[in-house]
Design a protein around this nucleic acid. Structure first.
Length: 193
DNA sequence: TCAGCGATTAACT
DNA sequence: GTTAATCGCTGAA
């Protein structure tokens, strides 16, 4: 069942990041459906978070997507090469987002591997935010896409994890964020990594 | 218009 | 665990 607006509009982005573990991201591109079970997320906690693009209330053409009401995709290009997929949360004007870092194949595994130019699935095939977007056929032009439409959406398939399966760590690649780089905002399912 | 830069990846030891 | 490659968008002028 597709996640509803109230899931995305909560005000605790860190809690939502944890709740997204086990949910399933779907995309439909060229009539091909692909989907992955989320096994790793990071929270980006609005204007007080130095690691967030919206730190200090920064609002530009790129970051304005994060200020929309929860339930849209914020996708941006990193290193000129990688499209990174985020889920926008909270209400309008609060720029919270959750980065999807890893998935397990759920539907359309062959298509996902083809997009990654791989023949054989390994557990690392879709570990890393750039790989997730590539496998699901997502690129930065889809930023701002509603998660209630037919291009990208997230479903609850009843998959959940016990608290002891969930590992909490600081976020990756945000050393420039000073003390905020140490915040325990990354969640992952240890047995899949 | 254009210099700067990055929420990474792949390929190493 | 480490390090180098990389390139087109972003944002300010």
């Amino acid at each position: 069942m597709k996640l509803k607006s109230d899931f995305y509009c909560g005000d605790d982005v860190v809690a939502i990041a944890q709740l997204l573990l086990g949910k399933v991201v779907f995309t439909c591109k060229n009539n091909l459906i692909t989907a992955g079970i989320i096994t790793e997320t990071e929270a980006y906690n609005g204007i007080t978070d130095r690691a967030s693009h919206a730190f200090g209330g920064k609002r530009t053409s790129r970051t304005s997507v994060m200020y929309q009401q929860g339930g849209v995709a914020y996708i941006y290009l990193c290193y000129g090469v990688h499209s990174l997929l985020n889920v926008v949360t909270n209400v309008e004007n609060i720029p919270h987002a959750v980065l999807i870092r890893s998935v397990l194949p759920f539907e359309g595994e062959e298509t996902m591997l083809q997009r990654r130019k791989q023949i054989i699935y390994t557990k690392k095939s879709f570990h890393g935010p750039g790989k997730v977007s590539q496998a699901l056929g997502i690129d930065y032009s889809l930023t701002g896409t509603s998660l209630f439409g037919n291009k990208i959406w997230i479903e609850d398939k009843g998959i959940s994890f016990r608290p002891e399966q969930i590992k909490v760590t600081p976020r990756i690649g945000v050393d420039y964020a000073g003390s905020d780089a140490l915040l325990p905002y990354r969640f992952l399912i240890d047995e899949f990594h």
